[in-house]
Design a protein around this nucleic acid. Structure first.
Lengths: 143, 143
DNA sequence: CATGTTATTGCAAAAAGTTGCAATAAGAGT
DNA sequence: ACTCTTATTGCAACTTTTTGCAATAACATG
């Protein structure tokens, strides 16, 4: 069995099922090490389990995100990208060249707690992508 | 001329042009008072200027966002939604029922400055949408 | 106000993402 | 192991979003 089968009990205890499709996708996400677009995930997952289809990939990614096994993150073009859960960090993307870096979640903790007390909403813990201009591109514009 | 023509000089000074399509879309955004999905904007803009096409709507929204006249904001399903610029606030969306509230930008200022100094990136000023659970839905889960 | 440059658009076709529903298969119970 | 329930998938059709390129029209200039 693949390393992804360790998620099975977690799913079963909530009344869900572990399937080859979900294993394939979890496997892909675990080995990616970074976030991937649904299309890329589809191509890679097909190498694990060729009968998988696109609608299944989209539905599975949404399912995994709802159940905390995957993390969706927004990209600059308005689409989702997914990564395996557990890597608790955020991104800052350069709006000029697209390069990106990670940001510790710790830096956002205060804000999240402030938002909760001022808004009345709880369990605010979204994965965020911020946009700015990276050091490299700052140089090009100052010359 | 529509109220949207006040944007014309702003565009022309940067070498861009004001067109009927852009006026129609700006008009729609100004009268919406809230954010709209591209599809809705297309339908409404067609009432202003029937020859407008979908690709133009998408391209124009991206253009307006790049030039600070419109603000894209992420929705829970991974798509963009747009609103007229000038309303400087962020959103918290309930991940259960979808209700949302606005958050003053002031609350994020500190975080943005911290991100800039720790990351080296500058001009971080993205519009953000956070996800949490609203007071109403908290009740349903505590019963 | 006619002209030339080129930013912007429309068209057509492709790619990406979504939906409804019947068929399949996970896994609980026997 | 077999059966039954129903969560999950595949299929097919559909909607949304993107792309390349030729045609159009904004507007700076003379």
């Amino acid at each position: 069995m693949s390393c992804a089968s360790e998620y099975a009990p977690q799913l079963r205890s909530r009344g869900f099922r572990m399937t080859s499709q979900r294993m394939a996708i979890l496997h892909v996400l675990r080995h990616a090490g970074t976030h991937l677009a649904p299309g890329e995930i589809y191509k890679l997952a097909r190498q694990e389990f060729p009968r998988i289809t696109e609608p299944t990939v989209y539905r599975t990614l949404e399912f995994l995100a709802e159940n905390g096994l995957a993390r969706p993150s927004h990209t600059g073009n308005g689409h989702f990208t997914y990564q395996i859960a557990g890597e608790d960090h955020h991104h800052v993307v350069c709006r000029v060249c697209g390069s990106e870096i990670e940001v510790e979640h710790q830096l956002l903790e205060n804000l999240y707690r402030t938002l909760e007390s001022t808004s009345g909403y709880v369990r605010i813990d979204s994965h965020m992508t911020f946009f700015g201009v990276c050091p490299e591109c700052q140089k090009s514009y100052s010359s």
